[in-house]
Design a binder for these strands. Structure first.
Lengths: 337, 337
DNA sequence: CTGTTAGCGCTTTCAT
DNA sequence: ATGAAAGCGCTAACAG
């Protein structure tokens, strides 16, 4: 089965390539019957127009790039699912890139996509990313970018996030209402926007209630270290009675630390976290959870980007912030554990 | 910042485009000093060779397509992580496609990639896929394919799987050794290869031990239904005392069913499953688990595909089966729950 | 060692 | 309504 290209079709139909092209492209100035003939044969031979040729001609790839810190993560994979849904519906393909939280890789990726491979970029920046010159470069090359979840304030471009601040306030109130006097905020990298917003919500809520001592415990990428940090903290003399975990990973680390020390959740320690895994609520009803609408974030981000790509106004859209509300904090009525 | 292309570079250096091209391509027949000059300017101007033009010329996209049933799934996202690692190291980009278990979508994807967009395909087929003509078509178009995890025996092409059969035998022995007399096999779609191999291992193990009544419970894609099926089964007169869950999703459904009925795992019901989520072992020590080496599967699959692409021998490689061993069944020595 | 030329497959003027 | 021809950006003969 040799390739079938425009030339093949044209030859078999005794038409010129341009006519065939017009017929397939649904253009003006084409005879109805000719068009029908062309479409028929194209279908028969399963003609697939070469993507490179079309891309070269149009300077469009019909592809969007998605850059995430990691994919083996329920939140990001759900986001990608949402992106996919919208992208596919709009005829776009999805190229996925992983930074593994490395700024170096992020820069590399940014470099390597300025070659027509993608028409735009969706990105959730790595925890190491403070300077965003590499992204400016991408935008200067004419590619629209949309931030999601982890945004940078250094660039005024559209971003899609959740109402982290408000949810964090609410989550903190839950802990306070449950009687916590000594809460730990289990934190992600301090330069991450989501961490910043959640921590601010947390601190503001504490302040507003003129309440409680508070510790900030800095978590990292290494699970075992997170567990050990928490174990150390929970074994201290002033044992915390509440934990606000910035992401699920840290809640799980907390869970393991408690198990290690024989502490019971929620009897000894109340835990609350931002989470997307369906499993977390099963672990312990009180360990849960502000659910982020990952799928919706993905869809919204993709829709925004596709919009930017297709209305190729060079005019900077400026900073359009779309905030998608987290689900309210849920508690299971029936305790499982 | 206008585009910088070969022409730009050539003009600024008073060289011809081909010389510049050669310098950048690290070809023979190029003056050392010229080369240096070219590379220097290219770096300065951040020259990125147009992917479409190169692709058109070489009939290569340096891109591999990955087709998975779903991405919001720890196993598949880990596999993609592995694929990424190898692909990136070999200079390949990764285009991800989701079928959401729909054969229709799978066929569509197969059609839409026969246009030079990808150089090869990694696929884990949907649960609806029995006939694989759409994949034959892809291969006939000259694209190498590698199956991973969920394979089809209809096509003799390389596939990367785990030792499902052996692991299932072993897992079953664990349940029998724990004293189970009435085990349920909680099954996926029957035409999935992984389900077939695991179920066969399960049944063979039972037979070999001349043991136990056994029920096959067919699970599906809808979580609530899975839970309800299991609740119904566990409420029957001959309540099963063991569950072999083909995948983690079904183990979680079982977990919820038990919780709903007030049954304790493992006291009332022993549960074992194939799993990749780090969280499952936390749920209940006895609920665990045959860990599939997802990352390794991804790496191996990608390496195999890249090999096929680069050694562009038209000769059919035939069916090369690579089996990657699952981790042994693990039990946590310390009970957490 | 370097330049000239042709062409990858497609779209799009510009003729007819 | 159709065809001829130019060209997207790059590379690989083929000259020199």
């Amino acid at each position: 089965m040799g390739k079938v290209d425009l030339r093949t079709l044209a030859a078999r139909l005794n038409l010129s390539m341009s006519t065939v092209s017009r017929a397939l492209g649904d253009k003006q100035d084409i005879g109805a019957s000719t068009k029908k003939r062309v479409l028929k044969l194209a279908r028969e031979l399963n003609y697939q127009p070469n993507a490179h040729a079309a891309g070269l001609r149009h300077r469009k790839s019909k592809t969007i790039g998605v850059v995430v810190p990691e994919i083996a993560n329920n939140f990001f994979s759900l986001v990608i699912d949402g992106i996919h849904e919208v992208a596919h519906a709009s005829g776009y393909h999805v190229l996925v890139y992983l930074t593994h939280e490395s700024l170096h890789k992020e820069i590399n990726i940014a470099r390597h996509i300025q070659n027509g491979r993608v028409d735009g970029l969706l990105i959730s920046i790595s925890s190491e990313t403070v300077n965003v010159d590499h992204l400016r470069e991408v935008r200067n090359a004419g590619l629209p970018i949309v931030f999601f979840d982890r945004v940078s304030n250094e660039m005024k471009i559209p971003c899609v996030t959740t109402n982290d601040y408000e949810s964090a306030v609410e989550a903190t109130h839950h802990l306070l209402d449950a009687g916590c006097k000594n809460i730990v905020y289990f934190s992600l990298s301090h330069n991450l926007s989501i961490n910043g917003k959640r921590m601010k919500g947390y601190l503001d809520a504490l302040r507003r209630r003129k309440s409680s001592a508070s510790t900030i415990l800095q978590g990292g990428n290494v699970h075992e270290e997170n567990v050990n940090h928490m174990i150390r903290l929970l074994s201290g003399k002033e044992r915390p009675d509440g934990v606000f975990a910035c992401v699920e990973e840290l809640a799980i680390a907390t869970y393991e630390a408690c198990a290690h020390l024989g502490l019971q959740i929620p009897r000894d320690v109340k835990v609350i976290c931002f989470s997307n895994m369906r499993v977390a609520p099963l672990l312990n009803p009180s360990l849960t959870t502000v659910r982020q609408p990952a799928l919706e974030i993905g869809k919204e981000a993709a829709a925004t980007l596709v919009g930017l790509i297709e209305s190729n106004k060079k005019s900077d859209p400026g900073q359009v912030k779309k905030v998608i509300k987290s689900d309210l904090i849920e508690r299971r009525s029936t305790a499982i554990v």
